[in-house]
Amino acid sequence: MARKILTVAVLAALAVLPPVFYLTGNAFYLDLATRLVILGIAAVSLNLILGFGGMISFGHAAFVGLGAYAVGIPAYHWLYYTAGDWAVSGLAQIPIAVAVTALFALLTGLICLRTRGVYFIMITMAFAQMVYYLIVSIEEYGGDDGLVIDTRSQLPFLDLDDPLQLYGLAYVSLLVAMGLVAMIVKSRFGMVIQGAKGNDERMRTLGFNTYAYRLTAYVISGAMCGYAGALLGNFTTFISPEMMDWTRSGELMFMVILGGAGTVLGPVLGATVFIVLEEVLSSITIHWHLPFGLMLIAVVLFVRGGLMGLFAVLFGGRK
C-alpha cells in the first residue's frame, strides 16, 4: 500500500512539475526532467533483466546509443518518409531503432547467455565496447566527434521540436515501459525468469529451457533500451559514441541499484536521484565525480535494496 502511494506520488510529480516549471519560464527544469525520464525508461528496461532476471548486463548503453544512431543516421541521409501530407520519419526511425537493438540483443545474447556470472558481466561490457569502437571507426557519421541531428523524428499529431510535447511523449513512454515490465514480471514468462534467477539448475530440471527464456527477456530489454535511445537522440539532437561508453552502462546499473533492483518503481527513483545529484554536484564543483564516486561506494556498501528497500524499512510494506 505504502508502495503504491509512493509510485503514484512520484509519477504525479513527474507529470505535473516539469511542465509547470516550463510554463513559468524555467525551461531548464523541463530539460532535466526529459533526460531523467528517458534514462528512466532505459533503467526500467535494464531492471527487467538485471533486477528480475539476475542478468548483470554491463553493456546497456550500447542499446541506448544504437537507438539514437538509428534516428541520427537516416536523418543524416535526409531520409524523410511521408504518408499523404504528413512527414512521418519517426514512424520509420523508431521501429528501426527497436528492430536494430532487438537484433543486436539477439545476436550478442546468443553468445553472452551461454555464460554465467562474471563472464556475463564482462562479455556484455565487451560487446558494448565493440559497438563503441565501430561507431568511432566510421568517419562518415562523425566518428569520435559525433553527429548532429538536424531534424527530429516527425510524427503525426506530435511536434518533437516542442519541448513540452517531447516531454509528454517521453513521460507516456515511461508509463508504458513500467506497465510492460510490471505485466511481464507477473506473467508466466516473468515467473520463469525470476525462477531462473533464483535457481537456474532447478528450473532446467523442471523442464524449462531457461536459455530461451533468458534470451527473450534480454531481447525485450535491449529493444526497450533502443527505444529510449531513439528518444534520447531526439532530445539531445547530438549523438556521439560517448553515449555508449562503458561508464554510461555503469551509470544505468547504478540507477537500478540505487533505486532498488527488482522493483518496478526503483529504477525511476534511481534515475531521478542520479540526475538531480549529478546536476547539483556538478554545479558545485567540476570535480563532482569524487563525491559522486564515494557516494556510489557508500550506497553499495551500506544501502541494501536501494531506495525502495530503505522506503520499505521506513514505511513498512513488503520489499
Binding site: 554491463f58 558481466i121 555503469g250 565525480h289 564516486g293 556510489l296 561506494i297 556498501l301
Partner: peptide, 11 residues
C-alpha cells in the same frame, strides 16, 4: 563488487 569498484574509478 562491480558497482563499488566503478565508483572507485571515478574517485
Amino acid at each position: 563488487q562491480v558497482l563499488a569498484t566503478f565508483g572507485l574509478i571515478l574517485v
